[in-house]
Design a protein around this nucleic acid. Structure first.
Lengths: 156, 156
DNA sequence: ATGATCTCCGATCAATATGGTCGCACTAAA
DNA sequence: TTTAGTGCGACCATATTGATCGGAGATCAT
């Protein structure tokens, strides 16, 4: 149903939490560890750990080992896009399979496929949407995005 | 990965085919049956049958029984939105679980959840996107959709 | 009427993706 | 050197999806 996975949900919550701690008024700059987030939001600890590892590996957060270790944002919340977060967890976001098509796989429908081009357009639009929204927008509250469509008249 | 299912792919192909036959130059108004579509696009017959049944049940196409039977669009291609097609096959399109939340299910993260509102905004944007594109746009070729975002400055 | 051809519907199975768990190696602070 | 933390990979359970099968009911031609 065009759904994002729970892992991604967790990633978003965690990032939002880390960002708000890091730039908040109470303890700015504090490092936050996995356990703290897991308990705050009732997320299974080990699963969250894996999620954070993925984010770290993708350069969204940086990890500090040892006691008093934990995570903090690797860059400004304004530079972390929702698209990047989702792709860090779920891999390249493709609305349909035929968008990457590595060699070796064949699409049985390909020869007469009539929907590839339109689907790629949709995919691109969704990507733009997610790429124009950042973690900072999620902190602030209301993301301001509008859609403008000309598709109702522009067909020949 | 925010992917639509193969059934939905099949539904889109089938609808595109039905529409192009129905409004094409060769045999306008012709009824087209499941087998024809399945063979043309290499889709498993029985699976496609189920997909078409769903579309029929949702009022997108109408079925005619018996020999020489088949399907045809129940309304103009311009009135069939991509969103409607997807929802016919996959159910209500929800980017995240917490958007419907029937009673009885509880979201463990709910009490401190910080991402619900932004996610619902995103979901709504995607819905608008898919709701503004119709089957007619897929026939014509290039859907004309643009995204306009103000999220980079509009945060308080 | 009767058979052939179609849609319709439900049950079922296999493959894949996802959510969640476990154990251990490594690192850094006390 | 002990302890609290991350890093990492293997692992299993379950849900979703893709695909299959069998039959019931409708309609048209003969």
């Amino acid at each position: 149903m065009l759904k994002i996975s729970k892992k991604t949900d967790y990633a978003l919550m965690a990032l939002q939490h880390i960002a708000s701690v890091q730039f908040g008024d109470v303890t700015p700059g504090r490092v936050v560890n996995t356990k703290e987030i897991a308990e705050e939001y009732n997320i299974p600890l080990e699963l969250l750990a894996k999620v954070l590892q993925s984010l770290s590996k993708n350069g969204l957060i940086e990890s500090h080992n040892g006691p008093k270790g934990g995570y903090l944002l690797a860059r400004s919340a304004r530079q972390i896009t929702i698209a990047h977060i989702i792709e860090s967890i779920e891999g390249p976001l493709a609305i349909t399979d035929c968008s990457h098509e590595k060699e070796g796989e064949f699409c049985m429908q390909r020869e007469h496929c009539n929907i590839r081009t339109p689907l790629l357009k949709i995919q691109d639009s969704i990507y733009q949407l997610l790429n124009n929204m950042t973690l900072a927008d999620m902190l602030g509250g209301t993301p301001l995005i509008t859609i403008q469509s000309a598709s109702t008249q522009g067909v020949e």
